[in-house]
Amino acid sequence: MVDKVTNILVVGIGGQGVMTASEVIAQTALRAGYDVKKTEVAGMAQRGGVVTSHVRFGKRVLSPAIPAGEADLIVAFEPAEALRWCGELRPGGVAMVNSEPQAPPVVSLGLYDYPADPIGEIRSRGIQVQRLAATEIARGLGNFRLVNTVMLGAISHYLEFSAEVMREVILERFRERKPKLVALNEAAFAAGRERGMAS
């Protein structure tokens, strides 16, 4: 077990499953024997606002919030949100980004523009970005809610614990509540894991 605290920032929009994803990461870290803290800065989360969740694990975690500029990994469910938060990464940190844009009403109303190429912009800041068509993959599997599991499969390459454990944590959640979705999530995790590796 490393002494250092690992910082993972999960970002997205209310309703996308940000909290579930961070919960899975936290539970996996717990199973690996780490001390874990997880914060949920949700605000009025059900209503389309920005959602961020901090997961920190290590031998001992003190402050629950990831200090600015010290995130090891950003898991972004939306490319513009990845751009919004990419400054939180430490030098050498990685951003795993779902490429499907989701414009808010203020953009629809013409009050703001959606950035032309958010992922390119992040890259131009010298940040290592992994682009992943997670929503597309999820839709291909027949349920856009699987985005979550696809993203988790993809980041399993960047975490020090075994992908098996994380997969188990996810599947257990469904075994209890929605057994019908176990196989689908298994497929989503595998798809994410496969694509997450290829750059």
Partner: peptide, 10 residues
């Protein structure tokens, strides 16, 4: 650089 994303009604 980037639009805000305030909470919206459902």
């Amino acid at each position: 650089v980037l639009f805000p994303r305030p909470p919206t009604m459902c």
